[in-house]
Amino acid sequence: MLLIKGLTKRYKTGDLALHDVDLEVPAGQVMGLIGPSGAGKSTLIRCINRLVEPTAGQISLKGQEVTGLGRAALRQTRRRMGMIFQEFALVERLTVMENVLSGRLGYVGFWRSFTRRFPPADVAKAFATLDRVGLLDHVDKRADALSGGQRQRVGIARALVQDPDMLLVDEPTASLDPKTSRQIMRLICEVCAERQLAAIVNIHDVNLAQMFVQRIVGLRQGRVVFDGAAQGLTPETLTLIYGEEDWSRSIRRDDDDDALATARTLHGEPVRERLAGLT
């Protein structure tokens, strides 16, 4: 699905953010990207949809080259990559519906979007997606009237309504409480499984990553230093990614809540809590 070859990014300041990164993400796989702050996780994600221009290397989505696309072609390719943000990045003063429909902007012309007269099929798709993420009651609210978890669901709906082939997810849970974080991660993984989307999820919480993703890639100073199954993370690999620290506790136990559930997940028995507030 997504193929990255020799991706390198050097910022104008001279900082080398990514160095010769090779990655392949197949359809339906949720890949967790971990690494210390400044390792280049956000840069990697932004290079894929070219919010940041890569310095060198190739990126292709479903066999189509993304690097080197002209402006119009780039816009068409961006439609196929949904992006989810850390601080939700909703347009605060627009309604939930307008925010979700903004995911369709790549498909409609300027005047239709300016007058907010989207094609009925798009509106129906937006309603269906809002139903999927459990926000059908909040369609007409302004985005700034929602709670953190609800806002991130709007963010997910906005990405899904694009009909993407893959999701680029940048720290989706960094500003959420532990429970909401899990619900959001679960939702992301479920929709990826339903629609066979490839996904790259930047994440700081190693535990949370292990609970939900199948594969983990560790980035350190712009280089891939670990690539393997989520269960394959050991204190040694974490030291390789983050540096020296006592890692034994952060792999086996969860400090903030239900350690038992985490332990069960780690023993190969996935926990299926129902999503509170999601019907």
């Binding site: 949809n49 919010l51 816009r75 068409q76 390719t77 961006r78 439609r79 990559m81 949904g82 992006m83 943000f85 990045a89 909703l90 347009v91 605060e92 903004s102 995911g103 369709r104 902007l105 790549g106 498909y107 979007s113 963010g155 906005r158 694009q162 680029l168």
Partner: peptide
């Protein structure tokens, strides 16, 4: 917010 809308292909 600008990034998010740009990323949708607008």
């Amino acid at each position: 917010q600008v990034e998010a809308v740009t990323a949708s292909g607008a």
